[in-house]
Design a protein around this nucleic acid. Sequence first.
DNA 1: TTGAAAGCGCTAACAC
DNA 2: GTGTTAGCGCTTTCAA
Lengths: 332, 332
Amino acid sequence: MSKKSISIKDIAKLAGVSIATVSRVINRNGKVAPETEKKILQVMEENHYVPNLLAKGFRTQKFTTIGIIVPDISIEFFSKIAKKVQTIFFEKGYATIICNTNEDYKMERQCINMLQAQHVGGIIHIVSVTTEKEKKTSIPTVYIDREPAYGNTKKDMVLIESDNVSGGYQATNEMIKKGCKKIICFCPKDKGSTHIKRWDGYCKAMEETGGKPRLVSLDNVSEVDAYEKAIELFGKDKEIDGVFATTDLIAIGVLKALKELKIKVPSQVKVFGYDNSLLSEIATTPIATVEQPIELMSEKAAEMLEKLMDGERPEESHIVVPVKLVKRKTGK
Amino acid sequence: MSKKSISIKDIAKLAGVSIATVSRVINRNGKVAPETEKKILQVMEENHYVPNLLAKGFRTQKFTTIGIIVPDISIEFFSKIAKKVQTIFFEKGYATIICNTNEDYKMERQCINMLQAQHVGGIIHIVSVTTEKEKKTSIPTVYIDREPAYGNTKKDMVLIESDNVSGGYQATNEMIKKGCKKIICFCPKDKGSTHIKRWDGYCKAMEETGGKPRLVSLDNVSEVDAYEKAIELFGKDKEIDGVFATTDLIAIGVLKALKELKIKVPSQVKVFGYDNSLLSEIATTPIATVEQPIELMSEKAAEMLEKLMDGERPEESHIVVPVKLVKRKTGK
DNA sequence: TTGAAAGCGCTAACAC
DNA sequence: GTGTTAGCGCTTTCAA
C-alpha cells in the first residue's frame, strides 16, 4: 500500500539531531536553539511530516478523539448537533468520530465498545429510544436531548436538554391565546423522553386554562401515520381548532390531511410543530414551530465534556436551556 | 479521570500466563491449549477487557479506521451517504470518522491532515466546492458525487458518481413529453461539477428537440435566491411552462414564487427538482425529482476503497451509476 | 503449547 | 540546548 509514512526518527536523522529535539519542536516545549528549530521545521516541511497522533495519544494517554453517538444522522436535528459539536472540537484540535445507532441498542452498544477500543477521550451521546438501562462505559460522557433510562441516579450523569416541557407549554399557550378552544396533541409517546416532556407541557397549558388534554398517540414519527390519524380524526370531529405536533414531520402529516379535507390553516385550525426544521420553514404552508437552541446545546455539551475529561465534577449535571417560539406569517 | 483501563498485561497476570498467550487468544492465531484459552477468556470477560485498538493499529500498521469527508453533514443527501458508508464499514469492523468541511478548502485540508495523523486506512471524500487542485495525501481515497478539480489525471483517481447528465436529460425530456414548450433551468453553476453536468443534460434534451437552453444562474443553493429570481422571471415571461431545478431546494423556491404569483403547478408550469429529498416528497405540492441511488453509490465506494486499501489497482476507476425519475401525482 | 523480548512512534525524565 | 533512554499496549519472531 502507500509507502510507510515518515516518522520523527527520519526527521531527526535528516536534520542531524536527536528525536527528542524534534519532539520538542513539534510540541513547542523545552528550549531549542532558533537555528536548530528552523532547520527541523524546514526538514519537516520538505518531507510533509505529519505527527502520528495514534502514537502520541498512546504514549501520553491523552486522547484527542471525541465520539459522537446519534440515533440517526440523516435526521436534521441530530445532524445539526453533530455538525456543531464536531466544529467546536475541531477548533480545539480534537478529531471526532460520529456514529449512528439507527435507534438500535445493539448498534449502540457496539458503538460504545468501538469508541472505547479507540480510546476516545469523551463521548457526546444522544441515546436511541431502545437504549439500555445500565451505563456501559467509564468514558466521560455527556448526554444531549434524550434522557438515558438510568437517569434516576442523576448525580453521575450529565445531561443537556432544551426545555421540552416549556416548549410544549408555550406552543399550546400561543394557540390558546389566539383563540383555540379544542387543541389536540399528536405525539409518539414511546419514542423517547423528549416527546413525553412536550406532551407534559401541553397538558399543563391545557389544564391551567380548564381545557382537557387529548392525545393522538402515534406509532412512529413519520408523517404518514400522522396523516392517517388526522384524516380519521378531523373527518368526524369538526370542533378541533388547534394541533400541537411534537415534531415538525408530524405537523407536516397533519397539514397534508387538513389540506385534503379542505380545512384552512391557520384560520380554521392552527398547527404547531417542533424543531424549526427546514421542512417547517419551506413547507408551502409554513408551520409555526418550537426552536431548540442547537448551537447553545452543543456548546454547553462540549464545555461540560471538557470538564469531565479534565477530571472535574461539574457543579450542575443537568442543564436545561430555553426554547423559542417561531411564528410564521401565513397566507390563508 | 476514569481509572486506567485494563491491559493485556493485567489479563496475563490474572490468568497466570504470558501476554503472548493472551494475544494469541485475542487474535485466534497460534495454538493455545483449550483450557488455557478458556481460562483467559473467562478472565477477560470478568474484567470487561477491551483490546486497545490504538496500540494494535500502531503495532501492526493496519488501520481499521475509515475517514468520511463531506461538505455539509446537515444536507440530506450527504448525511445519507455518510450514514450508509458508515453502516457498511461498521459491519466490517471498521470505525469511521465523519468530518465536515463546511464547503471550505481550509477545513478540508485540516480534515485530511487530521485523518492522516489518525492513520486512517482510507478516505471516502465528497469534495467541497472550493476544493484545492492538488491531491493532498497518499491515503487510499475514493471520491463520491463531486469530481475533484485535479480530475484531468483520471487514472489515479477513483470516482463514484451518479449519471447527472442523464438525470438532467431525463427530467427535461419528461417535461417535453408532457408538452412543455419553454423550459428554463435554475442552476448554481459554480457550485460543483454535479450541477454543471445536470445543466449539460438539460441542454442536450433541449437541443435535440430544437429548443433553446435558458439558464437562470443562481448565486447559491438556497431556496431564497431561487424564489427571488423566479418571481422576477415569471413576472415578465408568461410563456414559461417548465422548470428544471438542479436540486430540490431550488425547486421549492420556484414553487413558492409560482404559488405567490397564482400560477398553477403542474397544469400551467411543471417543476422538476433533483435528489428525491424528504422535502420534495412532503412539500404540500410534491415535486417530481431525480433520485440518485445513494445506497448503491455508497456500496460501490466502499467496495472500491477496500480494494485500494488492499493495494489493488481497480480496473475501472470511474463508475457512473444510473438515476431514476420520481414522478408525483399532484392535485392541481 | 508457551514465554521472552524486540519494536511500532512518540514523550518526558534525566543526564550532560 | 541537546541527547539518551524507558515505556505506553500490542504483535510477532525466536527459543524453549
